[in-house]
Structure formats: structure tokens, C-alpha cells
Nucleic acid binder design. Sequence first.
DNA 1: CATTAGGCAAAACAGTTGTTATGTGAATAC
DNA 2: GTATTCACATAACAACTGTTTTGCCTAATG
Lengths: 201, 201
Amino acid sequence: MLCEYDGGVPRPRDPQRRIELLDQIVGYLAEHGIAQLSLRPLAKALGHSTYVLTHHFTDKDELISAILAHLDQRQKGRLRALPGGEEGRGLGDIVRASWAWHMGEDLPMVRLLVEIEGLSAAGRLRGPYVPRMLGGRAEFVADVLRARGVPSGVALRNATLLNAAYSGLQIDYLTTGDKERVEAALAELAELADTWTSNRG
Amino acid sequence: MLCEYDGGVPRPRDPQRRIELLDQIVGYLAEHGIAQLSLRPLAKALGHSTYVLTHHFTDKDELISAILAHLDQRQKGRLRALPGGEEGRGLGDIVRASWAWHMGEDLPMVRLLVEIEGLSAAGRLRGPYVPRMLGGRAEFVADVLRARGVPSGVALRNATLLNAAYSGLQIDYLTTGDKERVEAALAELAELADTWTSNRG
DNA sequence: CATTAGGCAAAACAGTTGTTATGTGAATAC
DNA sequence: GTATTCACATAACAACTGTTTTGCCTAATG
């Protein structure tokens, strides 16, 4: 039977075990995707029976919600881990360094995130977590701009545009594989971002 | 039994009926998505049995391929139907007018396309059709730029960046619903596009 | 030591999946 | 007018889906 808190909402059994499981699950999803997620293959890949999943997450729907919440929470760490985020020269440097990381070592996770964002935009994924992730990214980049003296409102607008273009270039490259064309556009985007931080905009 | 052509590959029964079906199917997918597509509910929505689908498309996989090919082919018409595409002043006008159309009357189809592009970028959708669609869009915008005197290579790079940013803003708006923030970024994007066509870039 | 509680596997559950075999009725060809 | 082809519905098939029941085994509690 389920412990209860605050308003009668069922609470997870062992929060630490939940997080441990979620990390393994995210690793699995990065390779297999989330759109066609099925409990039995997932459980088998984890070396468990499907009951571990229903036991800790009650539902498939709630499992997916937990996954999205987990990814949302891990985003802060991912943003801080962005190369050049500390005190690199301009915003363009961050863009260029991020691209190298995202399209290299981090590529499986990027694929998963792109898939999730597409499904969420299409209205096929409920919950507040994906919108929160997008908003968080916008605020992160906006803060970088503000730290370079860009007025707050302009910073948020520029951050939104930069993130959108960056995301779109990721999708373009991942589907077409046209490295030359996409990276030329990325270079132009990075230069544009540089003009924003060397306040001659 | 199947008629054959060229190399022994089975050919569709009645090509005209196929197209008619595909149009209805795309209408259904625009409302229900493609990630969780199931043959029985689709067939029921069309007022048929599932056999109509397997009969005309042999497979679920080939049905999806046919859908993607169909969308790829209809893209040319969609691009020509873009408001302001004829001989509007600058590229920014096309951007602004397209946004109004895509986020209004055309929104269900945009949602479907966003979902498909996300799945394709994540590697969950095979076949040449989605890459071809992205490439076609890049070439369309590049041609608009070339017609305004932008050198061919620069035009393709700018077109890639513009499409990526536009796509990303669509995703942002569709998931966060933050109209003010996203449309501010769109306005900036449109202005940027205008600087490209009033060759002072 | 006895008892309980919790994590978990195994198996069973009903419902759904893609696919195929069979049958029917209409249109076409001979 | 007979034969053939074609589009399609119906129904069956095995495989898989999410979920639940049962029972085991271990660790904490009394």
C-alpha cells in the first residue's frame, strides 16, 4: 500500500531507488526513443521484471511524467556543463563549443530531447515539464546576455531566437546529415550572437 | 496478386484510390499524430476495415513511407501557397505572413510536421522523404534570396538559418504557448531576414 | 525468535497490435 | 453468359500491450 502525503497523492516508495532507476531508464531511452516505449523490453534491458516499473511509478503514464520531470531537473546540470559557459569571451563561443559537444559525445541524449520536444510541440505529451525545460533554457541564455550588459527584455528575446535557431539546426543536421550547409548556418548564427554581446547590435 | 513493374517491386493497386486514401489519412494524422498510429482506429475513422490499408499499402511500414512520400510531394504546393511568396517586398514579409497562416488555419498540419521532423531527427523514422522535405524548404527560401540578388552560397546558408530559427520558434510556441516572448523573437527574425534582402547585410 | 513490511519475479489477465485467410459482391473481359 | 479480376468486409491468428495477482525472499521491527 502507498504512503501518502499532503493531499492524498500517492508518493514514490524509495525516492533514491526511483532516481537510480530513472537514470538507467533515460540511458535506455537515449538509444531506443520514447515514442514507442514498451515496458517489457525496457524492464528486460534493466535486468528486471516489468513490476519494478509499475511498482515504483504505478502507471506507464506516470512513468513518462517521471521521466520528463527527471530530464527537466537534470537540465540545470546540463546547462552548467555547457563548454565555455563560465566566462568565455562572447556568446558565439558558447554556441560553437556547445555544438561540438552536442553533436559528439552528447548526441544520443540530444536525439532523445529532440524527439521529446517534437512530440510535446505536437501535443502528444502532456505535463508541465517540457515547457519548463524550454523556458529554463531561454532564461539561461538570457542571463548570459544580461551578464554582458544586454537589457533584460532584449536579452530574453535574443535568447529565444538563439535557442530556436540552434534547435532547428540540430534537427536539420540530424535529419539531413548535410554537415557543410548546416555548419555554415551555425557559424553565421554564432557570429550573430557575438554581435549581441559586443554591444554594437 | 500484385502487378509488377521494373524490378519486381509490387506496385500499388489503384494509384488514384491510393492518393485519395492518403489525403484522408493525412487529415486523420493531423488530429491524432503519427507516433502512436494504429491501423484499426485509423481504418474505423475512414469508415473502412483495416484491410483497405494493408491492401493498398501492403505493410504498416510501407504505409508510413507512403504517408511521408505523400507529404513530401504536397510540400511544393504548400510552399507556393505561402502568403506573400509571389512578389512581396522583403523576405521578412513572407516570414510574418507565414507565421500567421501556420499558427492559424494551418496549425494541425504544422503540428503533424513538427512531430514527424522530431521523430526523424531522433532516428525513429527511416526513408529519404523527411530529409528531402527539409532540403526542399531550404532551396525554396534560398531561391527567394537569390531572386533578390543574394549570392547563391550565402543564400543557402541564410535560408538554412532562417528555416531553422522559424522551426524552432514554432516548437517553442507550440509547447510553451508563450506568445509574447516567441513573437518578439519572430519579429526580430523577420527584421534580420529583411536586412538580407535589402542587400546591406 | 516471531512477525511484519517491502522489493521484486513469475505468471495470469484482458485488451490491442499487425497481419492474413476466407468469403462476397460488383465490375470487367471474353 | 460465363469467367475473371478487383475492392473490400469479416474473422481469425499469434504476438504483444499495460496491468494485477500471487508468492517468495530478505530486512527491519516487535
